[in-house]
Every structure is written in structure tokens, then in C-alpha cells.
Design a protein around this nucleic acid. Structure first.
Length: 577
RNA sequence: CGGGGUGUAGCUCAAUCGGCUAGAGCGCUUGGUUCGGGACCAAGAGGCUCCCGGUUCAAGUCCGGGCACCCCGACCA
């Protein structure tokens, strides 16, 4: 490719709305342009990188027996109603209507469609296992798109779905995909870490996320400094701690606390540690109130709470809901003497109480009294109230030991680029995707699903590989392998040599970008650095006089001189081909 | 969806208390001098000042309404 006619609009300054390093650099390097919030044009240079990543992913998917398909982005409502997700997916699902008023959505994922295809076309155990994958445009109407293509609304995803006769085979295959994912991110030149994850809206038994480690990542990973344990903070387990000792069991007593509604305020009044408190938070799950309790010095983890209460639509109680449930101002709720509530059907029911497992056996605790300006002290868990269950409810902190080996943990930031789920039979049962086993009995297929944010990988690679001058592409995903810069563009000898090398490189299968613009050398060097081409060859009258060209690596300040006749061979050696 | 902020040339930004023909730098075009790390000189092109309405002799500037974008909190590859 020659730059003179290549659509590569590089910018000296980043637009003010580009909000992180990769977004700024992608815009400056002429890879992308923003069309609307979370929606981007991909220009030729950006698309080349995207395709490079895509090719690596495709090779690895094919390598584990995947078969590429192409599924619709416009999907009928009926299919989504069969799995119940039309109702639960929420506003993130972009819904559309055709001229006949039929309802559709723009694909945010494709479990429904692929399972529908398989249920119609696969009947026998002999056809399993089967893995189908695609590169598909996805649209998720994110509340707040940001960070360029890293959290876009429209993005390119590789989504893969596997179908198995039984759980054992699905688990075996999950492991194969896991390994293939590791190879993909390695080949892309990324420093990454697979971590245990929440399965979220897609559902399923267990899952892992692949995190690209970068300071600017949005995810927090809890990682053991000794063993292999790593988990998304949302999911990081906390071991039950022995009950804090607050002295001998005490009588339950009123504790007037006018205007003091935070744990910190009341602790100060009492001169007690926040550990002696039962921190109370109210949620509404499937329309019914739930009280969640953690120790005063801990924070609640909503994802864990959701799991503990059995899933379903959940939101934190609003101020009005809170007051209706406990009959007191916010800050004065507690598990003791909690009033019953009236269900929509008019029945009176106890409010469900779930407590963090570190609260088991605690005595002498303090909590709200469900009356304005009043707390209770001397609470004994189990004596004064009995929670429905004890569970791991709190958010992990860096001080927590590793739940596997007990060693020190650390928190690191990551960008989620891939996610593997073991789905089980959630979708196959809902959509009746069955096969006939050897005894001619219909059985639900066991499924797995596996995603990679292809466009996000591009941004993540930049977050991890850049310097003050611009991008530094890992060789495997660089848009071009080498840049060729003829310094004196109007010198016939220089031009002839550059053209000769350019042709020879392409003939040898080396992707070469020649900057033949009539710009001053400095401008062209800056642009080549900005767009991050790994290697640069400069042809100038000066070096040509010695029958040489100059070679430089993007990450290095040093130059090499190559004889023009050896340039192709030397470059091939550098590229390992 | 709450809370905060910003919309002026392709990009980054000015424009005093409401007052003259809305400016600068970069980029773009033409000519010239330059030519190994974002050169210089000269001449140009380029604006529904986000949109609609209002106040005023006068609105980029004030008021009302909308829209877009960005930032801080709940979802996800």
C-alpha cells in the first residue's frame, strides 16, 4: 500500500471526546472515527488490524473443530420469548419493528438463534459434539458507552456455541476452548490472565473471563500472589471469618441515636469498632423485600447477593420502598423486630433476611431498631433473629487471603476480552433442542458458549502497547509488517530503489506500507511511529551512496544498515519467515 | 435513568459588560524557499456559532424548550 492515496487521516491532536489512551490513539492514527455514541466507522488501517485478530481467532476456532457460520443480526421476538429473555434482557436489547409491525431485536448475542438452528437440523447423538461459531456484529444499547471501541454499543464479536451429549463432554470441550483462547491471546501478543467469573445475564453453571492486564482496565481482578487462583472481584470468594468477639452475650437494649444513621457515626458514639455492627441493606427481589446483612466494616457484593437469593429481577430499595418496608428513616433498619410486609396478593409475610457467613454466631452486635433515631445493642445472631441463610455476601478486599491457598492476594486491573461459559441445558431445554441417544430416547443437549470481543482486543492491545509517540503493535496484529520511507521523494535513484524494495516485499508476501507522500521526512516518521508499524526501512540518497538502506525497530532508538541487495533477506529473517 | 459539564471552521480552542465585518493555531489549496524527527514566507478556501422559540435598537453571548456529546453511579465481549 502506498500512503499517497491511502485513506489515513492522522491527527496531531486527539478529539476532545476521545476518553482513553486507545481511543485517542485509534482516532489519531486514522483507524476509527466516531459516528455516534458507541458507534464507529472503521477506516482501512483499523480494519486491517481487526482482520488480523479475526484471522488468528478463526484459525484457533477451526483448530478445535469449530465450524464457521453467519447468523442474522435481526432476530424475531418469538425466539427470544421462548427463552424468556425478551422480558428480562432489558433496555440493553435494541428492539425494532418491521413494516408489518412484527417485532425484532438487533442481536446482542446469538444463543437463541443458534440453538434454534441446531434443534431443527441436529437429531442424533452421532452428530454431536458440534461447535458453531461466527464473527458477528453485535449491538448492546449500553447506558454509557465510553472508551472508544472498548465499550462500544456496536462491536464485532466472535461468538461460539457448542452442543454435547452430556455434561462430561461439555466440560472436556470447555477446557479445549479455554486452551484455544489462551493461544489466541498469546498469539495476539497480549499479557492476559484467565479468571473465574460471574456468569451474568447469559446464565450457566460456571465461567471464566480472559482479562488483558492494563492499568486502564474497567475490571478488578483478585489474584493470588502464590497459586493460580484469580477471579473477577464480582465473584472473588471470601472465606468465612470466625465471629468477632464483642464480650459475653449481652441483653438486648435500646440505643438512642438521634440523627446518627451511618455505621461510622454510631460506632463513634459508642466508642466501638465497626466490626460490632450489622450493616443492613434492603433490596427488592422479584417484587419482594430482602434484607442483606454484612459486618459493619465490610461492603456488600450485589452479585453475590443476587446468587444467594436465587436470581431474578433485583434492585436496591429506593428511599420510599425502604421506609415502607421498615417503617423508619433510611439508616435505622435492622434484622430484629422487622415488621412483616404485605404481598401484592394481600398476605402478610416475613421479610427474607440473608446474612454474610462471617456473622454466624456473633453476639453483642449493634444494628438499627426499625424506629427513627434508635439502634439496638447486644444483638445475638440466632437468638434475636434467625436469617434465612448465611452466605458469602461481602466484597473481597486486598487484605483477604487467597480462598484456595491462604496466601496474600493482590488487586489488578483488567480488560475483559473473552468469556467462556458452561451453559448446561438452560437454552436447550427452553428451546427443546434435543437429540436421540443410543436408546432412542430424546435428551436435552448440553451447551457451552464462548465469546471474544474482537474489536475490543484491538483497543486492549493498544492499551498495553503504546508509548509517548503512539501505538506499538505486537507483530502478529500490526496493520502492516514494515514501513518504507523514501526520504528524497523526488530523487529518481531513491524512488527507484524504494519502488524496487516495495515490489520485492509484496512479492515475498510481506505487507509493506510505503510513505510516498511529498511530506518532509519528520512528518512521515512521526506518522509511521504513531500508527505503530513494527519495522521501518528508510531509503535515502545518503545511505544509497553506500549501497545501503536503514532499518529501525519501532521500540528501539538504534539503527541498522543493510545492503540494499540483502534487504529482503534480512527483513525476512527479522520477521521469521 | 439520576447528578455535573460542554456544544463556535476538518481538529484544538478564543471572542471583555449583550455592541464593529466571529478570530487564532494546526490541517487543507496555490506559489515560492526548504528537506533525516510534526519547517518558513506569501496568497487563498473553509462558519445556519447544535436546533426551535423568546427578550432586545442589537444575541455566539441573556431566557425557555429540545437534541447531541463528555464526566460521576447500576450492565457486558
Amino acid at each position: 500500500m502506498k500512503l499517497g492515496k491511502y485513506l489515513l487521516p492522522t491527527l496531531r491532536e486527539a478529539p476532545s471526546d476521545a476518553d482513553n489512551v486507545s481511543a485517542k490513539l485509534m482516532v489519531r492514527a486514522g483507524m476509527i472515527r466516531k459516528l455516534a455514541a458507541g458507534i464507529f466507522d472503521w477506516l482501512p488501517l483499523g480494519l486491517r488490524v481487526l482482520r488480523k485478530v479475526e484471522r488468528i481467532v478463526r484459525q484457533e476456532m477451526d483448530g478445535i473443530g469449530g465450524q464457521e457460520v453467519w447468523l442474522p443480526v435481526i432476530q424475531p421476538k418469538e425466539l427470544w420469548e421462548e427463552t424468556g429473555r425478551w422480558g428480562v434482557y432489558g433496555k440493553e436489547l435494541l428492539r425494532l419493528e418491521d413494516r408489518k409491525k412484527a417485532q425484532f431485536c438487533f442481536a446482542p448475542t446469538a444463543e437463541e438463534v443458534v440453538t434454534d438452528l441446531v434443534r431443527k437440523e441436529v437429531r442424533s447423538w452421532r452428530q454431536l459434539p458440534l461447535m458453531l461459531y461466527q464473527f458477528g456484529l453485535k449491538f448492546r444499547d449500553e447506558i454509557r458507552p465510553r472508551f472508544g471501541v472498548m465499550r462500544a454499543r456496536e462491536f464485532l464479536m466472535k461468538d461460539a456455541y457448542s452442543f454435547h451429549t452430556d455434561d462430561e463432554d461439555a466440560t472436556r470441550y470447555y477446557d479445549e476452548v479455554y486452551k484455544a483462547y489462551s493461544r489466541i491471546f498469546e498469539r495476539c501478543g497480549l499479557k492476559f490472565k484467565p479468571v473465574e467469573a460471574q456468569s451474568g445475564a447469559i446464565g450457566g453453571a460456571f465461567s471464566h473471563e480472559f482479562m488483558v492486564l492494563a492499568e486502564t482496565g474497567e475490571e478488578t481482578v483478585v489474584s493470588c500472589t502464590k497459586c493460580a487462583y484469580a477471579a473477577n472481584l464480582e465473584r472473588a470468594e471470601c472465606k468465612a471469618e470466625p465471629p468477632v468477639s464483642n464480650g459475653a452475650p449481652q441483653k438486648l437494649e435500646d440505643l438512642p441515636t438521634p440523627g446518627l444513621y451511618t455505621v461510622a457515626d454510631v460506632a463513634k458514639l459508642l466508642g466501638a469498632s465497626p466490626k460490632a455492627f450489622l450493616k443492613t441493606q434492603l433490596y427488592v427481589v422479584e417484587g419482594k423485600p430482602v434484607m442483606a446483612l454484612v459486618r459493619g466494616d465490610h461492603e456488600l457484593n450485589e452479585a453475590k447477593l443476587a446468587k444467594a437469593v436465587g436470581g431474578g429481577a433485583m434492585h436496591r430499595a429506593s428511599e420510599a420502598e425502604y421506609q415502607a418496608i421498615v417503617g423508619a428513616k433510611v439508616g435505622f433498619a435492622g434484622p430484629v423486630n422487622l415488621p412483616r410486609f404485605k404481598t401484592p396478593e394481600g398476605k402478610m409475610e416475613e421479610v427474607r433476611i440473608v446474612a454474610d457467613h462471617s456473622l454466624q454466631g456473633v453476639t453483642g452486635a449493634v444494628s438499627g431498631a426499625n424506629k427513627d433515631d434508635l439502634h439496638l445493642k447486644g444483638i445475638a445472631v440466632g437468638r434475636d433473629f434467625v436469617p434465612e441463610s448465611f452466605a458469602d455476601l461481602r466484597a473481597a478486599v486486598p487484605e483477604d487471603p487467597c480462598p484456595r491457598c491462604g496466601a496474600k492476594t493482590e488487586f489488578v486491573k483488567g480488560i475483559e476480552v473473552g468469556h467462556v461459559f458452561k451453559l448446561g441445558t438452560k437454552y436447550s431445554k427452553a428451546l427443546e433442542a434435543t437429540y436421540l441417544d443410543k436408546e432412542q430416547k430424546p435428551q436435552a443437549m448440553v451447551m457451552g458458549c464462548y465469546g471474544i470481543g474482537v474489536s475490543r482486543v484491538v483497543a486492549a492491545a493498544i492499551e498495553q502497547n503504546h508509548d509517548e509517540w503512539g501505538i506499538r503493535w505486537p507483530a502478529a496484529i500490526a496493520p502492516f509488517q514494515v514501513a518504507l520511507v523514501p526520504v528524497e521523494h523526488d530523487d529518481p535513484a531513491v524512488k527507484a530503489e524504494a519502488d524496487k524494495l516495495y515490489d520485492a516485499f509484496w512479492k515475498a508476501g510481506i505487507e509493506c506500507l510505503m510513505d510516498d507522500r511529498a511530506e518532509r521526512p519528520g512528518v512521515r516518521f512521526k506518522d509511521i511511529d504513531l500508527i505503530g508499524i513494527p519495522y521501518r526501512i528508510v531509503v535515502s540518497a545518503k545511505t544509497l551512496a553506500a549501497g545501503e538502506v536503514e532499518f529501525k525497530r519501532r521500540e528501539s532508538k538504534d539503527f541498522e544498515r543493510w545492503k540494499t541487495a540483502d534487504a529482503l533477506g534480512a527483513l525476512k529473517k527479522t520477521l521469521g519467515i
